[in-house]
Design a protein around this nucleic acid. Structure first.
Lengths: 143, 143
DNA sequence: GGAATACCCACCAAAGCAGTTGGGATTAAA
DNA sequence: TTTAATCCCAACTGCTTTGGTGGGTATTCC
């Protein structure tokens, strides 16, 4: 049950933008180099993050990308969901209106629901600001 | 970040064996039918679970599979790990001795570690017995 | 005008997933 | 002693996803 590189790279890239927050638009090239990622691939991820409203972009020379909100208002959960889809371990407990045939009588289902809840609690409680400040203790108090 | 059918089917099948615990060996065919799974595919999963010591088998007519321990001593974590490998969202926080080049300075890493810990806490606290008894409230008290 | 950038879309190789197939070995029962 | 039920094993397959690459276009600053 792994994250794909979309989620991992995307989080790393967003973290970089959080570190350089307030410096105006940051170019894709810079982010890719700084985090050691393929520029072309990262472009696709940013396109997604933009669609979800987490990034804004400026075209042309000296253009680039910026977080659409302050780092304290962007959570890891928002980033991962926008790149990975929902973060449920099984579709039967996702919020997508998928429904499993056996539905009720399934003992596995509530196990998956518990896993999902615990993941959600973590990723929705950590913001980019927390990551920049390395706020481990803050998070621990929150959870 | 989904479980594969290995984890999902495997858990369902083990749950079935827990329900029929104490009835002697249970055939693959019965479990597959009861849970609506492909017999041939399930066979591979059982082979894995047996290697990990979670199942014992009896060959020949009237043979089958049994849990190797009482349901209260088999956790969801043991089952999922034996079928899915480690349950870390990223290899950089797995216990496998993988090590990431940037290691120290990676802010994403501790995020992944927090996710992993919360998953582990859930799956290691739920046993097959809990599932059979539908012990949701018991689990909630435990966590 | 030229350089730097974001935007868009098609394509691709490799790996993983979810089985299927086919045969063999072992054992209880008839 | 045959037969049917069962576990055991390994190869094969079609499909989808992953993790990119490449090429061209549009926009903006100097």
């Amino acid at each position: 049950m792994k994250l794909s590189t979309k989620g991992r790279y995307g989080l790393m890239a967003m973290y970089q933008l959080a570190q350089d927050y307030g410096q105006g638009p940051i170019s894709l090239k810079y982010v890719a180099e700084k985090q050691g990622l393929s520029e072309n691939y990262l472009e696709q991820l940013f396109s997604n993050l933009k669609k979800e409203g987490l990034l804004t972009s400026t075209r042309g020379a000296y253009g680039g990308y910026m977080l659409s909100r302050i780092p304290g208002e962007i959570t890891v959960g928002q980033i991962l969901r926008s790149l990975e889809g929902n973060m449920s371990p099984s579709d039967c407990v996702a919020d997508d209106g998928f429904d499993c045939a056996k539905d009720e009588s399934c003992a596995s289902k509530w196990v998956f629901a518990k896993i999902k809840d615990s993941i959600d609690r973590v990723i929705d409680s950590i913001t980019l600001e927390d990551m920049v400040n390395d706020n481990q203790s803050v998070i621990d108090r929150r959870m």
